[in-house]
């Protein structure tokens, strides 16, 4: 305990942006645990993936199949983004004016890349939690980018499954507690099926 006191001051001010995790719709749908890291009002909120990784932000590429405008005074847009494993529910409201304008302009269907924050909500007390993605940005991309994303998401998913099988980080322990009956092979299979859908 002699040295660290001086080391502590190093790079304290530098800012680390939360990375955007790659996750398939089929896995994100299973999330039902959300937590805050810290007591502060501005502490980041995380959704815990069943494969044992926390995410505050995700990056997804898929097909925007549907978008709807809702609300009278407070306009917001909802959209459905489909990947090989399921559907992401995305939304952008007046608190994300740029993202809302981007989403409003896009003609469906289109390949889109979305950066956003996952959120858990329930329709009412009794219903199962739903995951929606609050859009930070959405852009139209080509099929190549979509295919690259499927590889990327599959690789990250497989990495997480490996860590889940061998590791014991607090997030992994928590994920096992939250999803006691989960068999990681389900997500392994899902990643394989997603990869198999890409055609040359």
């Amino acid at each position: 305990m002699s040295m660290p006191a001086r080391d502590m001051t190093r790079r304290e001010g530098s800012f680390e942006r939360e990375p955007a995790r790659r996750v398939f719709a089929g896995e994100l749908r299973e999330c039902h645990y959300q937590f805050k890291d810290g007591e502060d009002e501005k502490s980041p909120t995380f959704v815990l993936l069943p494969t044992g990784e926390r995410c505050n932000r995700i990056f997804i590429v898929g097909t925007l199949t549907e978008k709807t405008r809702q609300g009278e005074q407070n306009i917001f847009y909802r959209g459905r983004v489909v990947d090989p494993t399921g559907t992401f529910f995305v939304m952008a409201g007046s608190y994300q004016p740029e993202a809302m304008q981007q989403l409003a302009k896009i003609e469906t269907p289109a390949f889109v890349a979305v950066v956003g924050k996952p959120n858990l909500y329930r329709k009412d007390e009794a219903s199962a939690p739903m995951v929606s993605v609050r859009v930070e940005s959405i852009t139209v991309v080509d099929k190549d980018t979509r295919d690259l994303w499927v590889l990327d998401a599959a690789e990250r998913t497989l990495d997480r499954i490996n860590a889940l099988r061998t590791g014991d980080s607090p997030d992994i322990t928590k994920a096992k507690e939250q999803h006691p009956t989960l068999d990681p092979a389900v997500f392994h299979r899902m990643a394989y099926d997603a990869l198999a859908q890409i055609t040359m």
Binding site: D144, D147, L148, A191, Y192, L195, I198
Partner: peptide, 30 residues
Amino acid sequence: DNRLLVNTCETKKFDSADHTRLLNTAGGAA
């Protein structure tokens, strides 16, 4: 200072070798 000053920036291309490698990894243990 933790920022990359980028001189060259290339768009990544889809690589079928990557695809095959991942299919093998994913197929292997499932």
